[in-house]
């Protein structure tokens, strides 16, 4: 059988259609009311409503802004620190235990302190995003540095590379594939955390939309919020995936 459109598009579309069908069927068969479990048609209507009055756009931008700032901060501080720890044995044995100790603490556990330190608004949320990404990036970068083939450092020594040249010409290009993978995993976590953070400290964002809609008992809006979160997460991952498939990374 010849498909009317490309299989790469056809099958995912098919599975989404099936999912929507199962969703509708579940509601019909369970007998739950629309207030408890809204069906696809109602959710779609709510989606259009929130899209057209700009609510969705504003909340999405608010969430993406926090993730972007927190994530960039984590990358800008975490990757250089990871490089330092990867290259310096002493620095590593001093800092690594602290990093390893703080890393398993869920960023959500920091919420009380974050609110106390940064008040209400974007800052505590950004801080939580930062925490969710920072430690993983430090650890992943340090490991990437330590697993660089020692031959490359010998080449650097053989051609009298300065410390700076060793970092820019050997370390950074060598760890880039691993770091991009770490960024991809980390941004997914950051996106998970932003929604949770927005349920506590702020008055905007997709997390806030969900919480606020729950208080208003608008489960259709709640589900719109969830669906948009899913799509943006997918979109973020696609961007990172594109980035990791660049030619200049395929050199190992």
């Amino acid at each position: 059988m010849k498909l009317p459109i490309k299989p790469a598009i056809f099958y995912p579309t098919l599975s989404i259609v099936i999912l929507v069908f199962v969703w509708e069927a579940t509601i019909r068969l369970s007998g739950w009311s629309e207030q408890v479990f809204p069906g696809p048609v109602i959710v779609f209507k709510a989606f259009l409503e929130l899209l057209l009055d700009g609510t969705l756009f504003n909340h999405s931008v608010a969430s993406l802004y926090r993730v972007t700032v927190g994530f960039y901060l984590a990358a800008i501080l975490g990757i250089p620190l990871g490089i330092l720890l990867g290259m310096h044995r002493v620095a590593n044995s001093m800092v690594n235990p602290i990093v390893q100790f703080l890393r398993p603490i869920s960023p959500l556990a920091w919420i009380p302190l974050a609110m106390l330190w940064f008040g209400i608004g974007d800052n505590p949320a950004i801080f939580l995003i930062f925490l969710s990404s920072f430690f993983s990036l430090v650890v992943a970068t340090a490991i990437a540095v330590r697993t660089i083939n020692p031959i490359y450092f010998q080449v650097a020594a053989n051609f009298n590379f300065s410390g700076k040249e060793t970092i820019t010409k050997v370390v950074i290009p060598a760890i880039t594939p691993d770091v991009v993978t770490a960024l991809r995993l980390t941004i997914a976590v950051a996106w998970l955390v932003v929604v949770a953070a927005e349920m506590i400290a702020v008055q905007s964002g997709l997390g806030y939309l969900i919480l606020d809609s729950r208080n208003a008992l608008r489960m259709d809006y709640v589900m719109v919020g969830m669906i948009v979160i899913g799509f943006i997460g997918l979109f973020l991952d696609l961007i990172m995936q594109k980035l990791s498939k660049q030619d200049w990374l395929a050199t190992r």
């Binding site: 083939n149 031959i151 010998q154 080449v155 020594a157 053989n158 010409k169 050997v170 880039t176």
Partner: peptide, 17 residues
């Protein structure tokens, strides 16, 4: 190491990037 004495490695001596 010195850049007057160059080492040719068994494998992977080129910087792959």
């Amino acid at each position: 190491a010195s850049s007057d004495h160059i080492f040719v490695f068994q494998q992977n001596g080129l910087l792959p990037w």
